[in-house]
């Protein structure tokens, strides 16, 4: 790549009109200022996409919370506010050291810049370390996303369910929602009582099991639908674990679908965590280049852009912290 890349710079008559101030000026830019402003605008546009990337998740969060506020105020108590607060402070301080790194890079202070970058890297590692303990604890007590929030149906219980070998969580409730309303209501109230013997759900009628696929394809007869027996046999062969609808949390006040809170919690903090990891790789790269002496007060754009990225990571966390940890 570099061999092809470097050829234009050797082409006579192409680059002579302007003397490059730094060895890192690309051939198609006329001046270092044009290059700096271009990369800066490019970075801001990229950060814009990052904002929209997280923005969709924030939208998801808002909708879930607007429709199930009590779910959020209930489940939020399982998050550790102190650890979250410490992590917020760690990220803010690492943002300061990142801003300081840019400051020193602009002034051409190589050693101070490198120290600041190292501090930022330690901050990022500290953040992830604390995050690891949080995740580790939650997964240990089964505060999970999806079906694993609930107890698995062991072999005996699965047999008791009958011939229905499907992943059976709360999905049957939907089938029943279409059924008799009053029967539904009483059945539903019973599900919130922890001492009701497992499993409470009736086996799903065969027609319902395939209705989803059918409705998406069309009315019966127009397209062949995979037989119910075949689906069951495949699931069993794949050795899938099936789950009951009994949560690990022994709490009578547990709202329905509490697993959704943890789903969105893991999705948002997880995606943020991935960005922290990417940020660490980037800071590491900056340290490497800084050590080689690539940056000075004429050319420091990578540090600047890295700083912008790192601040966006901080910015997202600034919203995640109150939205998850500080629900009254």
């Amino acid at each position: 790549m570099t061999a092809i890349d470097s050829k234009p710079e050797e082409t006579p008559g192409l680059d002579e009109s302007h003397g490059s101030d730094t060895p890192f000026q690309a051939h198609h830019f006329d001046t270092p200022i044009q290059q700096y402003e271009s990369v800066k605008l490019g970075m801001w546009l990229f950060l814009g996409t990052e904002i929209l990337f997280f923005g969709a998740l924030f939208a998801l969060y808002t909708i879930l919370r607007a429709n199930d506020p009590e779910l959020f105020s209930y489940a939020s108590q399982y998050l550790n506010t102190i650890l979250g607060g410490i992590n917020t402070a760690v990220l803010i301080l690492s943002s300061l050291s990142m801003a300081a790194a840019v400051h020193f890079a602009q002034r051409g202070r190589k050693t101070l810049m490198l120290i600041s970058l190292w501090l930022t890297l330690f901050g990022a590692a500290g953040f992830l370390g604390i995050k690891y303990f949080e995740y580790e604890h939650k997964i240990h007590v089964n505060l999970n996303w999806g079906p694993s929030f609930y107890y698995p149906v062991d072999a005996a219980e699965a047999a008791a369910v009958g011939e229905d070998g499907q992943v059976s969580t709360v999905q049957d409730e939907n089938a029943r929602a279409a059924a008799d309303e009053s029967a539904l209501l009483s059945a539903e109230r019973s599900t919130s009582l922890p001492d009701v013997p497992e499993p409470r759900l009736a086996p799903m009628p065969p027609t319902d099991a395939v209705s989803m696929a059918q409705s998406a394809i069309g009315p019966g007869g127009l397209s062949a639908v995979k037989p119910e027996e075949k689906i069951k046999a495949e699931r069993a062969a794949a050795g899938e674990v099936t789950y009951s609808d009994k949560p690990h949390l022994e709490d009578q006040d547990l709202p329905v679908n509490t697993h959704r809170f943890f789903a969105i919690y893991y999705a948002m903090t997880g995606l943020h965590g991935i960005h922290v990891v990417v940020g660490m790789v980037m800071i590491g790269w900056l340290i490497l280049r800084g050590t080689k002496g690539h940056f000075d007060n004429r050319y420091y754009a990578p540090v600047d852009l890295g700083g912008l990225y790192w601040h966006v990571v901080d910015l997202v966390w600034i919203f995640l912290f109150p939205l998850f940890y500080l629900i009254h």
Binding site: I63, N257, A263
Partner: peptide, 21 residues
């Protein structure tokens, strides 16, 4: 990405069987 997570982990965001919308 969420559809992928829904499919693999059944996180309950979009799938009505898991309380999703």
């Amino acid at each position: 990405m969420l559809v992928g997570l829904e499919r693999v982990f059944q996180i309950g965001i979009f799938d009505p069987a898991m309380g999703g919308d």
